[in-house]
């Protein structure tokens, strides 16, 4: 770790990389200063009951912090996964914290939830508990949204947002991603292991980024906002999305059905992300991966406007 917690505490949000920061640093700098109050924090030592079976070290917060704070003066609930601890994977305690937070949001009905994803998916050592936790979280997201709470996902960490994390992200009201924010169900190594290197070469980093990375997700309409890799940029995006996103009702789902059917119709035969971007009308699709943030946002806003009632 090049950036210590001490330095990060002093560095302003605009200078701190989201990708490099720890979950705690992200939360501290994303929210209004000194506003974060943690629920069942590390001093409670609610560690995983299963890791010791595998002789693996525990972390006092089981790799996620949840709590309450303020963003731009308004109350929010917030959860942040620590991608450096076991790849940010969902275990029993880790998942239960997020489930409880979302159920609080459901019961309150008006307080938004920010989920700072950084996860490889299910924690294998407690696979059944982790898988079920994800199922519970998906349901809890929908219940919270149905009750009127907005649930915003922020994605740009080391571990990306893979496996069941990708499905939870797909349940959120809106997502903000940075270029580093990869979203997928099967990770590159998983596809390669199961289907062979001809199907997907996990060591081809350019392929990984343009298939699963933030730019493609934004151009596809899978993410609502594309941001620079700073905590300030994510904060700004969260504030804007909280203003923009709507509720969750049957029309949201029928709109999403139409949106996804159109995607299959328009891009279903494309072999590569570059073909999709070309089909969308990006003038020089091959140049997209190298585009600086502001130029990319301009291109994305030009070819695909995001409507906020289709997810």
């Amino acid at each position: 770790m090049s950036t210590t917690s001490m330095q990060a505490a002093i560095a302003p949000a605009a200078l701190t990389s989201w990708y490099e920061a720890s979950a705690r640093t992200r939360v501290r700098l994303l929210l209004d200063p000194e506003s974060f109050m943690e629920f069942v924090g590390p001093e409670k030592r609610e560690v995983s009951p299963h890791l010791k079976v595998f002789d693996l070290p525990e972390q006092f917060d089981d790799g996620i912090l949840v709590g309450h704070g303020s963003l731009g003066g308004s109350s929010v609930l917030i959860a942040a996964q620590e991608g450096s601890f076991m790849g940010g994977a969902f275990g029993e305690v880790h998942g239960a914290k997020l489930t409880g937070l979302l159920r609080a949001a459901r019961d309150i009905g008006s307080m938004p939830v920010l989920i700072l994803f950084d996860t490889g998916g299910v924690r294998l050592q407690e696979a059944n508990a982790g898988e079920l936790a994800i199922a519970e979280i998906m349901r809890a997201v929908i219940e919270a949204r149905s009750a009127g709470a907005k649930v915003i996902g922020l994605i740009g960490g080391r571990a990306g947002c893979y496996g069941g994390g990708g499905l939870i992200a797909g349940c959120c009201s809106a997502l903000a991603v940075s270029e580093q924010g990869r979203i997928a169900v099967s990770g590159p190594e998983v596809i390669e292991t199961n289907r062979g290197v001809e199907e997907f070469d996990s060591r081809d980093r350019a392929l990984v980024w343009r298939t699963m990375g933030g730019k493609h997700r934004r151009l596809l309409g899978a993410a609502d906002a594309f941001v620079d890799d700073t905590i300030q940029a994510f904060r700004d995006a969260a504030l804007v999305l909280l203003e923009q996103v709507g509720g969750f009702e049957l029309s949201t789902l029928t709109n999403e059905q139409v949106r996804l059917e159109a995607r299959l119709r328009d891009f279903g035969s494309c072999a590569d992300a570059v073909d999709i971007w070309t089909a969308e009308g990006v003038a020089d699709a091959g140049a997209v991966p190298a585009l600086p943030v502001n130029q990319f946002i301009a291109v994305a806003d030009h070819v695909r406007r995001i409507s906020h009632d289709t997810r």
């Binding site: 770790m1 210590t4 917690s5 720890s22 705690r24 590390p42 070290p57 525990e58 972390q59 006092f60 917060d61 620590e82 450096s84 601890f85």
Partner: peptide
């Protein structure tokens, strides 16, 4: 207070 994370070569 808490610092660090539990990862290979690291500690909390």
């Amino acid at each position: 207070a808490i610092v660090g994370v539990v990862a290979s070569g690291n500690l909390e």
